[in-house]
Simulated scan of single mutants.
Amino acid sequence: MYRRDFLGLSLAALATPTFAAPRPYTLSGAGATITYTFQLNGAPVKGTVPIDTANLTIDSTNLAASTADVTADVRRARTGLIFATEALKSSSVLNAAAFPLARFQSTRIKLGPGGRLSEGAVVDGKLTLRGATRPVRFNASLFRPRGTKPGDFSTLNVKLSGQVNRRDFGATGYADLVDNTVAIAITAEIATTA
């Protein structure tokens, strides 16, 4: 389990020489995964899509100006059911053959209480899926991994959660079996590149 005290991720703690602003981050060796959950015939089904690239900048002097640009290859989407996986990637849902990449770009970050990128922070952005770009919102948490020293921000953990309506992106297939709302949870370990 990760440390949940969010040490050093407030404006006061980040304004140190060891955390100069702005600081670029990308995926660490641990990588990242998007987990999605949808209702299939009334039963929840979970699946995953690995994140290919994540370019993030955390600005210690203005945390709200931090940015994220993330892509995932939906051709690598998986569920626990082979028929559901193939249906998911079909032309009437994700249309993975024609639109292999999904992309999220942040447009606004609202800090949590105490000016933190955790405990109530919200990230607004644009999600491009199936060639359609729509606004989305994620709840966000950013914190140091368990066992790291106070003031060590070389590696951070990110958690995002939210939901999208698949119809907004033209993913309308199997409407008689699959609900429109898809819950999304993203977990990533990121490491500084500077």
Results as ranks from 00 to 15, higher is better:
D176N: 03
R167F: 15
S154D: 08
S161T: 11
S141C: 06
A185V: 13
G47M: 02
V123W: 00
A84T: 03
P24Y: 05
R116K: 10
A12H: 12
S141W: 06
F169V: 10
T35G: 09
L11W: 10
G112K: 00
E86I: 15
L40K: 12
A194M: 15
I82D: 13
Y174Q: 07
G42R: 05
T57C: 11
I190E: 03
T37M: 12
K126D: 14
A64M: 03
T193V: 12
G173S: 08
F19H: 14
V122Y: 04
R166G: 01
P150D: 07
A132V: 13
G8V: 00
T16Y: 07
D176V: 04
N157D: 03
L177E: 06
Q39E: 12
D52R: 08
A13Y: 08
S92N: 11
A65N: 03
T192L: 08
P50K: 06
D52L: 09
P100E: 14
E119Y: 02
D152S: 10
T85C: 07
D73Q: 06
L142Q: 06
T71N: 13
S60E: 09
R130Q: 12
A191D: 02
D168W: 11
F104H: 09
N139P: 05
R134H: 15
L117C: 00
S118V: 01
L40Q: 13
S106F: 06
P135K: 13
T35E: 12
L88W: 01
F19G: 12
D179Q: 09
G131M: 08
P44W: 05
R116I: 01
L88A: 01
R4L: 14
L101D: 12
T148E: 00
T71Y: 11
K46P: 00
S90Y: 14
R78Y: 04
V70C: 01
L11I: 14
I109N: 04
A30N: 15
N41S: 13
G114I: 09
S92D: 14
L127C: 00
E119D: 11
L63V: 07
F138D: 03
G47H: 02
